[in-house]
Design a protein around this nucleic acid. Sequence first.
RNA 1: GCGGGUGUGGUGAAAUUGGUAGACACGCCAGACUUAGGAUCUGGUGCCGCGAGGCAUGGGGGUUCGAGUCCCUCCACCCGCACCA
Length: 970
Amino acid sequence: MEYNFRLIEKKWQDWWKENKVYKVSNTSDKPKYYVLDMFPYPSGAGLHVGHPLGYIASDIYSRYKRLKGFNVLHPMGFDSFGLPAEQYAIETGQHPAETTKKNIATFKSQLDKIGFCYDWDREVQTSDPNYYKWTQKIFLELYNSYFCNTQQKARPIADLITKYEKQGSKHFSAEQWNGFSDAEKEEWLMQRRLAFSKFGEVNWCEALGTVLANDEVVNGVSERGGHPVEKKKMRQWYLRITAYAERLLQGLETLDFSDSMKEMQRNWIGRSEGAEVSFKVHSPQSTVDGRLLTVYTTRPDTIFGVDFMVLAPELDYILDIASAEQKQAVEEYIQYVKSRSDRERQAEVKQVTGCFTGAYAINPFNGKQIPIYIAEYVLAGYGTGAIMAVPCGDERDFKFSQHFNISVTNIIGNAFNGTEANPTKDAVLQNSDYLNGLVMRDAMKVASDKIEEMGIGKRKVNYRMRDAGFSRQRYWGEPFPIVWKEGVPTALTENDLPLELPHVEKYGPGPDGEGPLANITEWVNTPEGRRETSTMPGYAGSSWYFLRYMDPNNDKEFVSKEASDYWNSVDLYIGGTEHAVGHLLYSRMWTKVLFDLGNISFDEPFKKLLNQGMIQGSSRFVYRVQPSTAFGEKDVNSTQIFISFDINEKLSSGEINSKWLFEKISTLSKELSDWHNQNNDIPTYTINKLHVDVNIVDGVELDIEAFKKWKNGEYANAEFILEDGKYICGVETEKMSKSKYNTVNPDELCDKYGADTFRMYEMFLGPVEQSKPWDTKGIEGVHRFIRKMWRLFYSDSTFKNNETIAGKPIWTNDTPTAEELKVLHKTIKKIDEDTERFSYNTAVSAFMVCVNELADLKCNKKQILEQVLILLTPYAPHIAEELWNALGNEGSILDAKYPVFNPQLLVESSKEYPVSINGKMRTTLTFALDAAQADIEKEVLANDIVQKWLEGNQPKKIIFVKGKMINVVI
RNA sequence: GCGGGUGUGGUGAAAUUGGUAGACACGCCAGACUUAGGAUCUGGUGCCGCGAGGCAUGGGGGUUCGAGUCCCUCCACCCGCACCA
């Protein structure tokens, strides 16, 4: 009986399905464990071998935990709202719901082929009304909540309204509040709601016809498609994530994320400690004389080094400050800044621009008069939009001072060399009055104290993070449960949900930058007012999906308290690093809000995060010789001559020349040969390196016949100049993508080698977290291992063992020897440890070692093999089930008892010691573990090899570490 | 520029606490069995050297009886962030 993985895998996948082996209950005596994959966007391209890497890793861990006695939740679903389906709809007219449905079906069948243990009964799809009903509900929770600064948590907005009615606020009295119109009240409430709407500058992308989030804009162009992005003012929805900045930052301490991941989030949150300081405007003839300008600084210790002040050009009071003489220049500069897109500003970061306002400010510490400038390098949205410039300590300030000829005050003595700023905190302050002699680091506290004492400012913590834009002018997303009437929003109630997406015929944008929904007047206009026409962004549905898996069919709540209390937060979350700041921060925020509001009782969604690396493509190249136009354009294109890799190398190194090449080519192409004979000349040529489909290359050798059929026979007439009778391709590691013809489809590998082989090979490639190139060739090794293991159970016609009959089971019930038990228990220990620490590549190699050793021992004993099968289950579930069953066991091997390591079986009585001379290993000697050190030393010194190195001398000393090594120092 | 990470054979990689560097595979080289093999099995394979031996974990230095592992320094590559005061 051959190892027939096709039959075996089909058989068990069907059996698992029929018997609901992966169905998970919310009630169990076992401890719970929640393993989650970042759910995929179901793109039309299907899966390539890079996608399942994380899924395999999580599947192994899920099965392992189940074997170890946990009730394991391991669900899967689809993040099915999003731009690509909509763009496809624009191009083809196919409804996104249709393409999404089709794509999901493809994804599921691909995933099922690999044999994952998902409980599909818990599947979620973010574009399903039964799901997005609850996304809309949570939006309403956010809308109807505010962040209470005293309690540092979300509370119902009703509490705030009650407070306003009874006590008012610092902006208005209770009487005033009660006299406000609905519109006026709403205006105040909007400033506190966690989901709120305001006019804001948004990233408008003309080409995509939509607004993009900050993290969807990369270097001034759209992340998708690379289209230019500019600023536009629109009414937008936002999430007040800034309110949670501090808690998001603090929460990181409790999480098991990688350092780089935490660092990225810290960076994004961008906390900085400093102080706000007010400077008086000095402008005697003007009305603004004496007005206070507040700057934000992280370096109050440098306040005596302030030589000028810079304001963001966007601030509304700039023109009030500007002097009569400078007014025109200031206006021109403001115009200039407005005309500049983010893209230009980012491209020209090093260029100094700015404009003097004609006004001065007074340094409150020394009364010095300093000029006030405006410049685009100061951002309106950060701090107060105003800075105090200290050119001796800040590079940008220094450059600015050079450009505008402002003299620089040196407060750090020799630490400043006059040609560049020194941002040190360790210099001793000079020219700084009462701070003189202090190290800057220490002076920061002293200066802050003084600022507060003088009443001219206060300590202040700032965050770089901005509130998250939550509106998209798109069709394929969750509609907002909001109706507008005369500029005042009204929220729908839960009974109105889900507010379903209406059907549209066209997916193009609506008027004035609105989304496609604005075109459907019968949907937009309701008796209660006009519906919000933007939809929610992609991260809406993914910010809480981990909760829905816990209780997917609940039609009363998005998750019941019982279910969320039982499953609690995700124990292990596996996915790529690309969501470091987007998805992970948003879902952390939503979790905290829902925790504050009492919906769930944990405030971090993911305890441990494991980032799988990217699988890169290993591209293959062919080298096409193209004679230049001298030979004639028509013929250039019809010539299909390809040279092998080495020949191209030799050509570029000059080892062979064009003459050699063209003599070769003349034998292949009649036209060329004719031309060659007529002109008696060598045409010039270029070599074009072309991607070739990796699937028609065996290792590096091109399958010439397949190549001729490739691309519908585009190269059917190709001629080749070979090396050693083979066409060898060039190799490069690149991102895996269709256009580079380096994608490998997991389905094909499962068909050819089986899912078990595929799973183990993906893990065998290297550490899960690491990026590595895909090499299909290596899969053979893992496949050999699995077949070798099969042959421990069954003899087959090719297994050269004459004592057994081909195709017959060969396992026995004999009692294992000590040696066999040693192999088993060594493996138990290694697999258990490696699986626990996600070192799956070494675990696979441990299985190989185990099978190699058992084969060498000719061990076909059931008692040993059965245990190995249990260990193997997480990695190769199909073959494990098959053999487990064949051995006479009932039910799924997942319900077997995980083997327990017995250290006593590995206890050795002796050890083969490495014997080093001066730390260099020269020989080995075996001693009993209880041998006396004196005896060992004596015997070591008597050893021939040691004697040789000693050359008759006595050793300086002998290092002996029991059970480890011996080192003779000469 | 700032932050995080990685450098080990021809290739993917092991070496969990400082203790036999290169496990396990791919590839390659021999050989066996075969009509045949892209099947299977056996042996070999870091580099230099006939050999004894020497040299090897990006380079240089240090600590140590002993360093891939710890410290200093330099270099290269990858990934984030980037006028955030």
